[in-house]
């Protein structure tokens, strides 16, 4: 049996899953109790849970796709573990490539890793490269929050504007990439182009339509689902357009 996907590796995978779920449930239960004490009603908490769950489905499937992309070289289990904790494609792929590079192999992730030493090196590099936030958070979090609450107490309106501005700055980075970002020459779908703009614009339009329907007809349940629905509908538009448009238009990426 392949050492990358044997029973022992799966056991490690399930251990990590159990840990993450336990931590999340722990915080969820505490926050829920606190929310009740603060007088937030149960129906709005339930809505938060259901809309967050729905919202998560499409990005989670995209993460699953990353696991599969990496599984060709590393087997299913190590990418599964890595993408369940801390992992994100932007980090895991370069980390795995760098580790394989250290062995002088130019093939990188395009070839299956069959040498146990190379495999364990990849596991070490992916782990050591990603744990920094876990070391920083205990030291920094309280200090950052203290600074924040001081600013809020001093000038609430200013703090509200600044917090909206921070969100918008973050969102602008992603919107900017969808409009003018460059991808890898050889990869289709990663640079700004017809498809990224279609996804961006159609999800904006769906969001406006769904929100105004929810407001005009006073459909309360629709409000929290407007965003996940818009996202999924926009992905549907991309899927349809990529089938019906001629490939030169559908796959056109102006920045490569």
């Amino acid at each position: 049996m392949d050492f990358k996907s044997d029973g022992f590796m799966y056991a490690l995978g399930f251990l990590v899953v159990a840990f993450v779920v336990a931590q999340s449930v722990f915080f969820l239960v505490r926050a829920w109790k606190r929310a009740k004490a603060l007088g937030i009603d149960t129906s709005s908490l339930k809505k938060t849970v259901s809309s967050s769950a729905l919202f998560t489905v499409a990005p989670a499937l995209a993460i699953l796709a990353t696991v599969l992309t990496l599984s060709g070289a590393l087997g299913l289990v190590l990418p599964w573990i890595r993408l369940t904790v801390i992992g994100a494609i932007t980090y895991e792929v370069p980390a795995a490539e760098a580790a394989i590079d250290a062995f002088g192999s130019a093939a990188g992730l395009s070839q299956e890793v069959t040498d146990p030493e190379m495999f364990s090196t990849v596991a070490w590099v992916m782990t050591l490269g990603s744990i920094m936030p876990l070391i920083l958070v205990p030291f920094l979090l309280k200090k950052i929050q203290k600074g924040m609450s001081k600013a809020v107490a001093k000038n609430g309106k200013w703090a509200d504007v600044m917090s909206a501005a921070a969100f918008i700055g973050l969102i602008a980075a992603f919107i900017g990439r969808a409009i003018a970002g460059k991808g890898e020459e050889s990869i289709i779908g990663d640079g700004a182009g017809v498809m990224s703009l279609c996804a961006l614009v159609s999800s904006m339009i769906f969001m406006l339509i769904l929100q105004s329907i929810a407001n005009r007809f006073n459909i309360k349940w629709l409000q929290p689902f407007a965003m996940p629905f818009s996202m999924l509908l926009a992905m549907g538009v991309v899927m349809i357009l990529s089938q019906v448009l001629p490939p030169d238009i559908a796959l056109f990426e102006w920045r490569g």
Binding site: A58, P59, L61, A62, A65, V161, A164, A165, F167, I168, I171, A172, F174, I175, R177, A178, I188, G189, D190, M195, S196, L197, C198, A199, L200, V201, S202, S203, M204, F206, M207, L208, Q211, A226, M227, S230, M231, L232, A234, M235, G236, V238, M239, S242, A250
Partner: peptide, 27 residues
């Protein structure tokens, strides 16, 4: 596949527009 490639723009389009409507001057 093309839809999965565009998860990020689809997500931030929907999220962004509700912020931009409220704070268009900041955007």
């Amino acid at each position: 596949a093309p839809a999965f490639d565009q998860v990020v723009p689809a997500l931030f389009g929907a999220l962004g527009i509700s912020y931009f409507m409220k704070h268009w001057k900041l955007a």
